[in-house]
């Protein structure tokens, strides 16, 4: 029953909250309308999700979110320093990071996290989803970068998505 009408509880919650924020009110009417949409929209787009997302470890997810937030701030200070310094001194490289996670959403999340954090932009999650290409702004040891991405972001994702 639950599974049938609420295939994606997390998506539904996000939709409801977004609706209330957009309307800037939490009146009964808006809550009702928002709840209707929060049930209807996931049902309407159900067929686009091939593999269901199951969050196994909510605690690990929260911890990863905090680590990423902190890293975003750190990354920005870092990039600011690099951008304002002399550009001739930068050592940009492309690094290929082999992947262990398989779930498409986990791969997409990892690529996004890499883009938002220290001096790296993920360029090309290859079509077979076995590796991602990362461009880094200023790196002395490419292998260490790859190891760091794997241990800092991929391991927790693997735990969360249990794959």
């Amino acid at each position: 029953m639950m599974r049938r009408w609420l295939p994606h509880p997390v998506t539904s919650c996000v939709l409801l909250v977004a609706w209330l924020l957009l309307n800037r009110s939490a009146d009964a009417g808006h809550v009702l309308l928002g709840a209707l949409l929060a049930v209807a929209i996931p049902l309407a787009v159900r067929r686009f999700f091939h593999r269901p997302v199951r969050l196994r470890r909510p605690r690990a997810a929260v911890r990863l979110a905090l680590v990423v937030l902190w890293d975003i701030v750190r990354a920005n200070v870092n990039v600011a320093r690099l951008v304002l310094g002399p550009p001739a001194r930068l050592r940009p490289v492309f690094v290929e990071v082999p992947l262990d996670v398989e779930h498409p959403i986990a791969v997409a999340l990892l690529a996004s996290i890499v883009t938002m954090t220290p001096g790296t932009v993920s360029c090309d999650p290859s079509t077979d989803r076995r590796r991602i290409l990362v461009h880094a702004l200023d790196v002395d040891d490419p292998d260490r970068l790859a190891r760091e991405i794997k241990s800092r972001y991929e391991r927790p994702l693997q735990e969360i998505f249990a794959c």
Binding site: N76, V79, V83, P92, T115, G119, V121
Partner: peptide
């Protein structure tokens, strides 16, 4: 501003990509 400066002064496209995506978003 830092994001835009990065966009304006870094030497190649892949490096310029770093400025706007991170700094401007934050």
């Amino acid at each position: 501003l830092v994001g835009a400066i990065g966009l304006a002064r870094l030497p190649d496209f892949y490096m310029r990509l770093h400025g706007p995506t991170k700094a401007t978003t934050l």
